[in-house]
């Protein structure tokens, strides 16, 4: 119907499949997010370290280049699990800042502007809403974590040969699982805080604060109570414990890997509970 015909007519065309509708939210979110020049620049900065790693891997597999420049070589450059663990550590720091920047703008504007009934009065569930919003973070964080990580692994495999690849395939699996868990925890935490704190800046600050405050409080608890379980409040250490175990290294955090997994599970469950409490079409005023 032409726009000059200002009459109402019902829509009778085809509909999209219901399962795909949660992907509508990230499309609109990305269109909005990429309008920020700061985000674009920071996102690009997230790839500096993987690019450096590519150079490192290339040199490690081409030591003759270094020796031709007179650099001492030998065991100095080696590509093993610890390199990928360190890669996780560095990229996790970038994703942490990226999440603090993006996360609060996902849910809180909808709550501030009362948009939840508009989403949920359609054939669109709360779970789909959360999945849609979460997929924004999952997609972006994946691009700077396990995707470049696996690319590094493939590059190393192609340079070191099939024998190395076959013997170290578990590193790729560990990298993917470790980063996926980190992305899940970070995304849920950001969404939950964004849902409860409507002021975006405060929510972003709290995402950062949860890690810093947790670390500080955990250390204080360890010192006062003379225990090591205070470390469980330090999500960075908890995650490091899980990554170390996944990369078959010995964590020096003082907590068991089982306790770390349970801690992450509890964090995710609490975040989901917080989201379920807030992401609803109406508010019950007591």
């Amino acid at each position: 119907m032409a726009v000059y015909k200002r009459t109402y007519a019902a829509y009778e065309g085809a509909l999209t499949p219901a399962w795909s509708r949660f992907l509508i939210l990230p499309r609109y979110s990305f269109a909005r997010l990429w309008q920020s020049k700061f985000l674009v620049m920071f996102f690009m900065a997230c790839f500096f370290y993987p690019l450096g790693c590519i150079g490192y891997i290339y040199l490690a597999n081409n030591l003759s280049i270094l020796s031709s420049f007179g650099f001492p070589v030998g065991q100095f450059l080696k590509v093993d699990a610890s390199l990928f663990l360190y890669f996780c550590w560095v990229q996790a720091a970038f994703t942490y800042l990226l999440t603090a920047f993006i996360g609060p703008s996902l849910v809180s504007p909808d709550l501030v502007n009362g948009a939840m009934p508009l989403y949920l009065c359609r054939p669109f569930s709360r779970a789909e809403y959360i999945a849609g919003k979460m997929s924004v973070l999952v997609f972006l964080l994946s691009l700077v974590t396990w995707v470049p990580g696996l690319i590094l692994f493939v590059i190393q495999g192609s340079l070191a040969g099939w024998e190395w690849t076959k013997a170290n395939l578990w590193i790729a699996g560990s990298l993917f699982i470790g980063m996926a868990v980190w992305i899940l925890v970070l995304s849920l935490l950001a969404l939950a805080l964004s849902a409860w704190i409507k002021w975006k800046i405060a929510a972003g600050g709290l995402v950062l604060g949860v890690f810093f405050a947790g670390a500080g409080f955990g250390t204080a608890l360890n010192n006062v109570m003379r225990t090591k379980y205070g470390t469980l409040l330090n999500l960075t250490e908890v995650m490091y414990t899980v990554w170390s175990k996944l990369f078959r290294l010995t964590p020096d955090t003082g907590i068991s890997v089982e306790a770390a997994w349970i801690c992450l599970g509890v964090v995710c469950a609490v975040c989901l509970w917080l989201l379920a409490r807030r992401v609803r079409a109406f508010e019950v005023v007591k």
């Binding site: 829509y11 065309g13 085809a14 509909l15 999209t16 219901a18 509708r21 509508i24 609109y28 909005r32 504007p109 909808d110 501030v112 502007n113 009362g114 948009a115 009934p117 508009l118 989403y119 009065c121 359609r122 054939p123 669109f124």
Partner: peptide, 28 residues
């Protein structure tokens, strides 16, 4: 459904907002 209270997405244009709501209802 047209709710009683303010319900919108502030940083979207009207056409993007209505389009998004249409898509969520199943329109291509």
């Amino acid at each position: 459904y047209m709710p009683e209270n303010d319900a919108f997405i502030a940083n979207l244009t009207a056409v993007s907002f209505v389009r998004m709501m249409g898509e969520l209802a199943g329109l291509p």
